[in-house]
Design a protein around this nucleic acid. Structure first.
Lengths: 266, 266
DNA sequence: CGTGGACTCTCCCCCTGGGAGAGAGTCCAG
DNA sequence: CTGGACTCTCTCCCAGGGGGAGAGTCCACG
């Protein structure tokens, strides 16, 4: 009478018995009754909607811990916000997927267009910057926010195109230090914006043309050039968005200057 | 000279040292030289593009084994086909994601609209069918192909709307048996199309209105009804696409009849 | 009132694709 | 020649399950 064995509940919810046991263990979906002697789990019909919510969230790759947090939230408004948050994250994943596809297509094209590389002794410069340790997957969101803040603080007082400086760890591991800047004569200190000094460095510089998504391919070509010219790379890479979405909405016209700190090897 | 330690190669490719070691172990990306005494790995500059391809494929969640297959394929055409295959799979994932979002929104709506359920003693019927054991994620693709084949074989001779019969395992585990059919008087046997008999069953039937994506919610409601009426569910579920994309392109008008085999419990 | 088959329990090991750290060995520039 | 940076292998950990073994339980039918 309204009480179901795990097998019945499994059939009704399209969740496997094993998965239900795991959800019990994770305190995500607890049976209404657990027989103390036999250990048998018994579920109630009213748990079906909850099970379905879990099922859908899992299909969206929401971690179990976050599912739990969502379920434990009583306020429907807050709950909807949490879900919306995850949907936003899904959007980001989608963006990265698109970027990877673009890169991949470029990589599979048989013509490795030669690139022009220039060695440049970059002296130190002070700029208005926003910096943080960010997750790799959040970079694009973070960049948008940081750049908006910079634009608001500097705006027309910028003395050149924006740029960024990204730690290697950001690419290799899940998180790393990132800094974006706008050059200006008197960097203010408001909100996250503050003055920062980009240290002097010997840079190998090349220009990537087109959407930013395919930039990894150019990185590879630049790296190859560096090695073949008896040098090695170091330090955080630098990018200057010479022509970007600020300037034109046509991605094909975008130009990104990539600078990689190098040092001569014997 | 053109030979890089793992650390240098890591910096150039934006793959972590650990990951490079794993790719070596998996025979995905083997260093050009491995020092027999020290075990040090040394990579060549010419391996950078390969590393980048791996990196992008992994971002698209292509399993390492498939990455290996792609890399081992010498013919660029075949290779492009393999990649296209994975991009298709990505599309499917996207579809499922969309479906999950739709379901989720429906689930989070506070009004659980009551459903009309009818108990029906369905007698056995013979139909023209296509059946297979399919992966859950491939269901939609498979369905489209199977239904196209059925339409080609039966076409106007169909005596009713198409339907399907899906094993529980298809939902609970990763794969399961699926059957789609078109009713007709004299089922032919061509290609994958063959006559099949849907066994007699006592069905609890309800109608799901709207896109098929939200159907799981209706399943839950139907299951609840069944249990609350002192019955239990069994066997593979049956769906009849009473009004579907065959009939109108307006998803809001689609009607799917869901039939769940039931039996009375004492 | 048995009993047999279906169901369920727990426990352990497996998978993928990594991350973290220990402890020892190696490379090379100053 | 020495110290610091780098690299080696090894083991353990994570999520989110799948698979199976071996034992215990439930229940309908005879």
């Amino acid at each position: 009478m309204g009480v179901l064995t795990i097998g019945e509940f499994s059939r009704l919810t399209h969740l496997s018995v094993r998965t239900l046991r795991r959800y019990h263990e994770a305190a995500l979906l607890e049976p209404v009754v657990v027989d103390e002697i036999t250990g048998y789990r018994y579920y109630g019909v009213d748990q079906i909607p909850t099970a379905q919510v879990i099922h859908r969230l899992r299909e969206l790759d929401v971690p179990l811990s976050d599912v739990q947090r969502i379920l434990r939230t009583p306020d429907p408004g807050v709950r909807a916000a949490l879900v919306a948050d995850h949907l936003q994250r899904l959007e980001d994943v989608l963006d990265r997927t698109r970027a990877a596809v673009v890169s991949l297509r470029r990589l599979l094209r048989p013509d490795p267009a030669p690139i022009a590389v220039e060695l440049r002794a970059q002296s130190a410069r002070t700029v208005a910057a926003v910096e943080a340790v960010v997750e790799h997957r959040d970079v694009s969101t973070w960049y948008a926010g940081a750049m908006a803040e910079l634009e608001a603080a500097i705006g027309a007082a910028a003395t050149g195109p924006p740029g960024g400086c990204y730690d290697n760890a950001l690419f290799e591991q899940e998180r790393g230090h990132a800094l974006v800047y706008l050059p200006t004569d008197a960097p203010p200190r408001t909100g996250r914006v503050h003055p920062a000094t980009l240290p002097a460095a010997e840079l190998a510089v090349t220009t990537h043309v087109g959407e930013h998504d395919g930039v990894e391919v150019t990185y590879g070509a630049l790296g190859t050039w560096v090695v073949e010219n008896a040098m090695s790379v170091a330090g955080p890479v630098r990018e200057v968005y010479v022509v970007g979405p600020r300037d034109t909405s046509d991605p094909a016209a975008w130009r990104t200057e990539i600078g990689w700190p190098v040092f001569r090897v014997t």
